[in-house]
């Protein structure tokens, strides 16, 4: 498997094929005396912003803190990865993860109140 080509920037889906973001970052753990270990996949605005520019990262971080949203990227342990075919499939329930924080907020605070949005 080619991490950058086959995993990074791929579509993340949960066990029910629900789209839950993209693989915005990959975390590798360096361990003394042992080979590096693939630890987490990251997803979320902060992970993405950090790749673009450090200042953008700081802004988004501060903004998210003010809104009380998860200011750190949501990390998914590599062990949860089921499949890396077309999409990267994770063994979780998307609705219960912070990955869909904004989705849930919009749904419950905005969309629901527009006629036909329930």
């Amino acid at each position: 498997m080619h991490l950058i080509r086959d995993v990074l920037d791929n579509q993340l889906v949960d066990r029910n094929q629900r789209k839950m973001g993209k693989v915005d970052g990959i975390v590798i753990e360096l361990r003394p005396g042992q080979p590096p270990r693939l630890a987490y996949l990251e997803t979320g605005a902060t992970a993405l912003a950090r790749r673009l520019h450090p200042r953008l990262y700081q802004w988004i971080f501060a903004l998210e803190r003010r809104w009380g949203k998860c200011e750190l990227p949501y990390r998914i342990p590599w062990a949860k990865v089921r499949d890396t075919g077309i999409d990267v499939e994770i063994d979780v329930e998307a609705e219960q993860t912070p990955a869909l924080d904004y989705e849930r907020w919009l749904r419950n605070h905005v969309i629901k109140h527009i006629p036909g949005g329930k």
């Binding site: 993340l12 839950m20 973001g21 993405l48 904004y102 989705e103 919009l106 949005g117």
Partner: peptide, 20 residues
Amino acid sequence: ALGWNWGENLHPREAARFSS
């Protein structure tokens, strides 16, 4: 680009960010 749910026939509640 950001991996959200999308689709022309989805109900807005299934794709809140997309419809927004």
